[in-house]
Computed example of a mutant assay.
Amino acid sequence: MLDLLNQNRDHFLIPAEKVATVYAENKLNHAFLVLTKVRYAKIPVLTADSHFVGLLSMPMITDTMLGLSELDTSQLMRHTVGDVCERNVTTVENPYDIELILHLLVDNPFLPVVAQDGEFTGIVTRREMMKSFNNVVHHCEGLPLTREEK
């Protein structure tokens, strides 16, 4: 079964140019708008030369606005994405090992994929892996594929 998954490995990677990202130098107000628009829980943070820095979520942004008695939205202009993003993030290097990906996706909805030099090349999502795994199971069992799987 692992051989069949390896045959589909080209479908797992969502390339960097198709992934919503922000730069570490961006102000938090920009990142707030991006996260609001794309509605993802977390997005990758990159350097200006496309190297992976970490991940950013809406709670990381809103935490900077919390005061003792009210929200202080002016903090969004004072801080950058790099000030608040999560930097201790598990990444996988391209080319990646399918077994490792399967293991790591148990606890992560997606994994950032980087080149050997740290350049961000895309993400592998749990959803894409599950779609492929479902396809393999149907293929092995001779079951018809659903419209979404084709």
Rank of each mutant, 00 (worst) to 15 (best):
V89Q: 10
V89H: 05
T90F: 14
V92H: 02
E93V: 09
E93Q: 08
E93A: 05
Y96T: 02
Y96L: 09
D97C: 09
D97L: 05
D97F: 09
I98E: 02
E99D: 14
E99P: 10
L100T: 10
L100G: 06
I101H: 01
L102M: 13
H103T: 14
L104A: 04
L105S: 03
L105R: 02
V106S: 13
V106Y: 13
D107K: 14
D107N: 15
N108L: 11
N108G: 07
N108Y: 11
P109M: 12
P109K: 12
P109W: 12
F110W: 03
F110R: 02
L111N: 01
P112T: 07
P112N: 06
P112S: 07
V113A: 00
V114E: 01
A115E: 01
A115K: 00
Q116V: 13
Q116C: 11
Q116G: 10
Q116H: 13
D117N: 14
D117P: 04
E119P: 03
E119H: 06
F120W: 08
T121R: 04
T121Q: 04
T121A: 06
G122W: 00
I123S: 00
I123L: 05
I123E: 00
V124L: 03
V124Q: 00
V124M: 04
R126C: 02
R126F: 03
R127M: 05
E128T: 13
M130R: 02
M130T: 03
S132K: 01
N134E: 11
N134S: 08
V136E: 01
V137T: 10
V137R: 12
V137Y: 11
V137L: 11
H138G: 10
H138E: 13
C140F: 12
C140D: 11
C140W: 10
C140S: 13
C140K: 12
E141P: 03
E141D: 11
G142V: 03
G142I: 07
L143E: 03
P144E: 15
P144I: 05
P144F: 09
L145T: 10
L145V: 08
T146Q: 05
T146K: 05
R147V: 14
R147D: 15
E148V: 08
E148T: 08
E149K: 06
K150M: 13
